[in-house]
Amino acid sequence: MRFSIYRFDPDKDEKPYMQDYDIALEPADRMLLDALVRIKTVDDSLSLRRSCREGVCGSDGMNINGRNGLACVTPVAGLKEPVELRPLPGLPVIRDLIVDMTQFFKQYHSVKPYLINNDPPPETERLQSPEERAQLDGLYECILCACCSTACPSFWWNPDKFVGPAGLLQAYRFLADSRDQATAERLDYLEDPYRLFRCHSIMNCVDVCPKDLNPTRAIGRIKDMMVKRTV
C-alpha cells in the first residue's frame, strides 16, 4: 500500500517535505495506525503520537487524505492511495505528524472545565435525575483529540481568541450540568466577539468528530442561553 507522509524534523530539516512509503501490509493490519506502526519498523524516524489504539485516548489525530481523524479507528481498506497523511492543520508542527497542542489546551482551560458548586457537599452524592444526567450525553465523551478545532477555519484564523469547538463543547458540558452553579460567570466569559461568536456554523467539527459528537449544536445552545438571559 502506498503512503505519502508529511515529514519534518527541526533537528535536521530546513523545511518540511512529503515522503513516499510503499509497504506490504499483513492481514492483521486493519487500521491506519497498524499500517503506521508497520512503517515505523522500516523507518523508525517517523514520529507520531499513539496510545490506546481504540479511539478513546485521543492521541493519534491527524489529517488523513485531507480530513481529520484518528488513525487507530480509520480502516486502511477503503483509503484512497497514496494515503496522504499530514499533521492536524493550524497548529505548529513539532515534528512529522506531531503538533504543538499548547494553544488548543489553553482554550480548553480557559472555559474553566470543572464543576463549580459552592455549597458544602452532602454526606452522600448530589442527586441528579436521569433526565438531568442525559443532558450531559454527547458532551462528556470528548477525548480532546483536537480533530474538530483543527478542522475549523475560525480556529485557524484566531486560535488565540476563539475558544474553538472542543473548548466550547466542554463549556456547554458544565453549563448543562444541573450540579453546576457558575452559569452566569461562564456566559459572561463567553459573551465576546471572538470566544464564542467566531463560530459561523461551518460544521466541519461535526463532520470530523471521531466520537460522533456535535459541537455546533452545543454552541447553538450556549447562544440560546445568552439570548434567554437578555430577555
Binding site: 452522600t124 452524592e125 436521569p130
Partner: peptide, 23 residues
C-alpha cells in the same frame, strides 16, 4: 470506597443515575 466515590461525584463525575437521582 463509598467516601471516595462520593468525593468523585462532588468533583463533577458524570455518573449514570437511578430514578431517585442516586448513582
Amino acid at each position: 470506597a463509598s467516601e471516595v466515590v462520593y468525593e468523585l461525584e462532588h468533583y463533577g463525575m458524570p455518573f449514570d443515575r437511578l430514578e431517585n437521582g442516586k448513582i
